[in-house]
Design a protein around this nucleic acid. Structure first.
Lengths: 252, 252
DNA sequence: GATATCACTATCGTATGCAATATTGATTAT
DNA sequence: ATAATCAATATTGCATACGATAGTGATATC
C-alpha cells in the first residue's frame, strides 16, 4: 500500500507556507480521526507498533499532535501505551473483550429503554431506511455491511439525545470492532438485519421491556456468532509454542 | 491556602538537578490526579479558568504535561476546552446534568445486576464495614461523609471485576460530584446510609431484580434530594437579566 | 460623547530540541 | 558455539521556542 506523499517537511524551511492554516485544534482532531479509522478498518492491525515519528511524517504534523491523538486513543482503549516503549494498536485479551461486550450490552439496553415509545415518525423512518440499506448490502461487500450494522447502533444512541450515552456507546462499539478483528470469524455478518427490524418495531410499540430484551439478545448473539473462536493468543510465546514443540525445542 | 514552593525552574538552569527523576508518564499522571481532585473537592470551582502556564508553574512541570492532563479531563467532561481560549473547569448545564445522572443510574444498575449473588463473603464484609464507617461519619464532617458515600459506589463497581464498567462509573461519579457542586443543596447528605444497607442485603440474597431496582431508586433519590434547586444559571447574560430589568435596561 | 482603530499583553497551538531509555547488532570472553 | 558486554541507533518524555489569536485599554475619528 502506498501513501500519498506528505508535504515533505524540509528541515530548514520555515514551515509549509502554502497550505491554508486550518482552525486550531482541528489538525489534532484530524490525526485522531485518521488513526481511529485506520485502526477500526484494520489498516492498522492489532498490536502493530505506532511510532510517533513516522505517523507524524505521513500525516504532515509534528510528534506533538500525534502524541495527543495517541493519548486520547489510549484512554478509549484502542491504543496501548507503554512507558518508554511507545504506542501500539491495542490487542485486547479475551477477558477484556468480554468486559467490553458486557458493558456495551448494558449501555445499548439503556438506549433501547430510553427510546421505546419516544421515537418520532421521522426517526422511525430513518431507521427503517437504514435497515433497507443493510438489506441491500447484505451478502456481498463485507466491509460495507459491517459498517452499516455498526452505524445502526450509533444512530440509535444518537436518537436518545444523551451525549454521554452516545459517547460511551461509540467507544464500546469501536472497541468491539477491534475485538472482532482479532477474535471474530472472517466472514461473520455481525448483525442479523431481521433483529434490527424487530427492534424498531418494539421501539415503535413503546414496549420498553421487549426492546431492551431484543437488544440484549441481539448483541449477545453477535458475540456467539462471531466471537466463538478464540483463534489467536496475544503473547508471542503462546503463538510459538506449537512450533517449538514440532521442532523439538522445549521451552524453559 | 499556601502551596509549597515548586522547584523554582530558573530560566537558564539546565533543569532541576536534584529531584530524583520519577518514572516516565508518572508526572503527567500526577498532574492529572492533582487537577482532578482539586476540581472534585471544589478547590477549583466550576467555570474557573485553568491557564496552562500558572498550573505548570505551581506544579513544577511544563505546559506540555498540563495540556495533556487538561485534554484527558476534557474528554471526561470535568474540563471544558475552547479553541484559542483555553481550559476552564466544566460548568454543566442542567440538561447535561440530567444526561449524566441518567447514564450513571444505568451503569450502576448494571453493577448491581452483575454483583447480585456473586459477592464473596469477604466482599460483603468489606461493604458492611464501609457502611458502618458511613454511619459514624454521618451528621458531622460533611466532606468526609460525601467522600465515603461516593466511595461506596466505586467499591461496588470495582467488585464487578469489569475494568471498563469501573472506568465509566468513576467518570460518571466524578461528573456527578461536579454537578452537585453547582446545583446541589449545600448540606444534602447525598446518600442515605440505610439505602446502602438494603442494597447489600439484596446483593447477598442474589436478588438481581431487587438490587437493580434499589440502586435505581437510590440514585434517583439522590437527584431529587440534592438536585431539586436549579439555583444558578451559566451564562452571564442570564445572571444579569434581572438586574437589567430592575434598572430599566432592555436587552437587545 | 460614542464608536472605530490600533498597539499591548496574555495565552494558546504547534514544532522542535535535548536528554533519557530501550533495542539492536557487533565484539569479546568463556 | 554460547553467553555477556558494549557501542550505535531508534524512539520516547518532556521542556522550550515562536508564531497566532483573543481580550484589553488607549488613542483617534466622527
Amino acid at each position: 500500500m502506498t501513501w500519498i506523499e506528505p508535504q515533505k517537511a524540509e528541515p530548514n524551511q520555515k514551515r509549509d507556507t502554502m497550505t491554508p492554516p486550518r482552525a486550531p485544534g482541528l489538525r489534532a482532531q484530524s490525526v485522531y480521526n485518521a488513526l481511529r479509522r485506520a485502526i477500526i478498518e484494520q489498516a492498522l492491525k492489532p498490536a502493530m507498533k505506532l511510532p510517533e515519528d513516522s505517523i507524524g511524517e505521513q500525516l504532515g504534523v509534528s510528534r506533538t499532535l500525534v502524541r495527543e491523538a495517541l493519548g486520547r486513543l489510549a484512554v478509549e482503549g484502542l491504543v496501548e501505551l507503554k512507558p518508554n516503549r511507545g504506542a501500539s494498536v491495542a490487542y485486547p485479551t479475551l477477558e477484556e473483550a468480554r468486559d467490553v461486550f458486557d458493558v456495551r450490552r448494558g449501555l445499548e439496553r439503556l438506549v433501547a429503554e430510553n427510546l421505546a415509545g419516544r421515537l418520532t415518525a421521522a426517526q422511525a423512518a430513518e431507521l427503517e431506511a437504514h435497515v433497507r440499506q443493510e438489506e441491500m448490502a447484505h451478502g456481498r461487500d463485507g466491509p460495507e455491511s459491517i459498517r452499516l450494522s455498526g452505524e445502526f447502533h450509533i444512530k440509535l444512541a444518537e436518537m436518545t439525545g444523551n451525549a454521554l450515552l452516545l459517547r460511551y456507546v461509540q467507544e464500546a462499539s469501536s472497541r468491539c470492532s477491534l475485538i472482532l478483528a482479532i477474535y471474530g470469524r472472517p466472514h461473520s455478518s455481525e448483525c442479523a438485519v431481521s433483529e434490527h427490524r424487530q427492534l424498531i418495531e418494539a421501539l415503535r410499540d413503546g414496549d420498553a421491556a421487549r426492546a431492551a430484551h431484543l437488544m440484549d439478545h441481539h448483541l449477545q448473539s453477535v458475540v456467539t456468532r462471531a466471537l466463538l473462536t478464540p483463534r489467536a493468543e496475544r503473547d508471542i510465546r503462546d503463538l510459538l509454542a506449537p512450533y517449538a514443540l514440532s521442532e523439538g525445542l522445549t521451552s524453559p
